[in-house]
């Protein structure tokens, strides 16, 4: 009864507060879109250096969308790479196509390969054609960058926006005096925390759903796993963020103070959660990532989306997330003791 009363009230407040709803649902999409625009720019037209290839291939490359085809030696091409003036070098080595990719930008690599494949198709070489030898001047073969970090971004934005909205509304309960009023009623502390988690949890389900749908079907993010399992992990991550936010709001006296948790709690999680490779970091730095919920959420999301693993294979990450959420939840009930011991 008490819990339902809180749930119902939160739903009402949510519909009344359009701006918060907008922040929760629209803002993640907006920011995600910006990142997508930056990382996943479409139809890049590459500049290709060639040496000793058939004129038909040059024509083909041109038709397939290369911006410019320049005749130069491999050494010249390498210099051009350093100057940022060419994106690839194509020639023949021992009768086999040889492609040297500039390599620093995954989307550019993709663009070059697309143009090359299209040009070859037009040449009708037929079966038994030799696979090209591909080398990278910078970097190494990898997935599209957005594909690689997209899953982490989903996790991050869900985490971030739920953290902000959940934390601030719980904080406002205190600043507007309603928490004290609530604590003068026979409600139990765990009922308050549980009501909050369920009330907001309902909205995080909607939010997770929108973000996942948008990422998969509008951005066409690479997705090898199961949609519903992905949604479940996203939701779990959101609940963890929610329980962490309500807990931390006990340690802020106003909204402004709560915002200060962002650089402290949120930003480090971004850097340590897999957007940037951790392998090159010192070991003690890698340890930091182990205490961050986003690390596990993002890891599970990434494995699902790129490797297509199931829940059963990502159970470790999922269990850890649940433990995090549970711990934050229990700590929050304890933290409320500051306001009423009973």
């Amino acid at each position: 009864m008490n819990i339902m009363a809180i749930v119902r009230r939160i739903i009402r407040q949510f519909f009344r507060d359009k701006r918060s709803m907008g922040l929760m649902f629209i803002a993640p999409l907006l920011v995600l879109t910006l990142v997508w625009l930056v990382l996943d720019g479409d139809d890049y037209e590459p500049v290709i250096a060639v040496e000793g290839v058939l004129p038909a291939l040059v024509d083909g490359l041109e038709d397939a969308g290369a911006r410019e085809i320049i005749e130069m030696t491999e050494q010249e091409a390498r210099d051009a790479f350093e100057q940022g003036e060419a994106d690839a070098y194509i020639s023949l080595k021992d009768g086999r196509p040889y492609i040297l990719l500039e390599g620093s930008e995954p989307s550019v690599n993709t663009a070059v390969m697309k143009v090359f494949q299209e040009a070859r198709k037009g040449m009708n070489i037929g079966p038994g054609q030799m696979e090209p030898l591909i080398k990278y001047y910078y970097g190494s073969p990898d997935l599209n960058l957005f594909d690689r970090v997209g899953s982490v971004l989903i996790g991050f934005f869900v985490f971030f926006f739920v953290f902000i909205i959940g934390g601030i509304s719980f904080l406002r309960e205190r600043t507007q005096g309603t928490l004290e009023k609530l604590l003068s009623t026979p409600i139990k502390r765990w009922e308050i925390v549980t009501g909050y988690l369920i009330g907001f949890g309902l909205f995080t389900i909607v939010q997770s759903f929108i973000i996942v749908i948008f990422s998969l079907y509008v951005f066409d993010m690479y997705m090898a796993g199961d949609f519903w399992q992905l949604l479940l992990v996203t939701f779990l991550l959101a609940v963890t963020a929610l329980s962490l936010a309500t807990l931390l709001s006990a340690f802020a006296n106003n909204e402004f103070q709560f915002m200060q948790f962002i650089p402290v709690v949120i930003v480090p999680q971004v850097f340590f959660s897999g957007i940037f490779p951790l392998e090159t970091l010192a070991e003690w730095l890698q340890w930091i990532s182990y205490i961050m919920p986003l690390t596990y959420g993002a890891e599970a999301l990434q494995q699902m989306m790129i490797k297509g693993v199931n829940l059963s294979e990502a159970w470790m990450e999922i269990m850890i997330l649940i433990v995090f959420a549970l711990a934050f939840y229990l700590l929050n009930i304890q933290a409320l003791k500051k306001h009423r011991r009973l």
Binding site: R9, R12, Q13, R16, D17, Q176, G177, T178, E180, L182
Partner: peptide, 8 residues
């Protein structure tokens, strides 16, 4: 202080 939910 008035302990009320202002949106409601």
């Amino acid at each position: 202080s008035d302990a009320l939910y202002h949106e409601l």
